[in-house]
Design a protein around this nucleic acid. Structure first.
Lengths: 174, 174
DNA sequence: GGCCGACGTGTCAAGACTGACATGTCGGTG
DNA sequence: CACCGACATGTCAGTCTTGACACGTCGGCC
């Protein structure tokens, strides 16, 4: 169960409300690492507060509650992060599609690969532009930091290069 | 719901039994793209057979049933693969850990990053060795093909490079 | 002052997934 | 020929996740 750890990690860096946390999951975090909607976040925050992993530090307008990680929460987070990597759970629909391409006719597969190459290339360019134009946007309340941006960039580039390799391979076979 | 599509993709390439499918999910497919245990695979196969997406082509020893994709199944698979990429579902505990590193003390984060770099580097080397030593193992009933191997390799290398970048960045800050 | 969109939190039913448990078969080794 | 490990399929309860629905608030624009 990774959601509590994800929330703990976010709240250890800076206090946020459930609503703000939801926004983060819609950005880089949800795109590369772990997705979650507000319908799982709010109940989870309540459960974690009961367990003493997080606490409400202030209440704002419109009934908003700002949470922060407690010492117990930080300890739990550290334990999780420092523990040896077990066989991780992976679920990535995009990658699944790529793996299934060999089930298509080569001509169809080529079309899809081409689209993948284009899409990821565009995404990488976009990310590079954002990072250079406004580096602060990445560290703001919704962005997730330089680490994530760099990871995403390298990820896109790797996929684009892989797609290019696959296209070349398919064309050589034809 | 991606599991049926994953099964369809596998069965479109070659007929397999539920047991064999389970094995594939324990290999590359489950490691990079989508994991599933036999407890979800068997019921799903039955559902898909009812819908006419797959069919039992032969029954072997120990009650084993070999499934193959039907024409309807292939059509469904093609539709799915050719349709424009929607916002994909991503869930990767390993990546989540990486994203949460900024919540740790730099010294701790460094330790974890170093371990990530080592682990992925070893995994990449391993994969490279397997591919060169016995390229046929990749295309056998359990392997998932050159495409997957290449993807995994590039993936590992990207993560390793990213970790190296992050380590350098952390050390420069210190 | 009314309206609307973003803010902000929540429930609930339906569906998906995991891990524990269950059951039986075939092939090879000692 | 007894045993064991791999083969092979299955159920089920508990948990997690998703999507639909629900409700109220604040700020800004017309």
């Amino acid at each position: 169960m990774s959601l509590p750890h994800a929330l703990l990690g976010l709240l250890a860096v800076q206090p946020r409300s459930g609503y703000e946390l939801t926004k983060v999951f819609e950005q880089d975090l949800g795109r590369y690492a772990w997705q979650a909607g507000h319908t799982s976040i709010y109940p989870e925050l309540n459960r974690m507060a009961e367990k003493g992993l997080v606490e409400v530090t202030s209440e704002g307008a419109r009934g908003s509650r700002t949470y922060a990680a407690t010492d117990a929460g930080r300890a739990e987070l550290r334990t999780w992060l420092m523990s040896p990597p077990t066989q991780a759970k992976v679920r990535n629909e995009q990658v699944l599609r790529m793996f299934m391409l060999s089930a298509l006719e080569p001509a169809d597969a080529l079309v899809v690969l081409q689209r993948i190459a284009e899409t990821t290339d565009r995404a990488a360019a976009e990310l590079r532009k954002v990072r250079e134009a406004e580096p602060d946007a990445l560290t703001g309340p919704e962005g997730f930091g330089q680490l994530a941006a760099e990871y995403g960039l390298r990820q896109y580039e790797a996929v684009r290069d892989w797609a290019g390799w696959a296209i070349e391979r398919l064309e050589r076979e034809a």
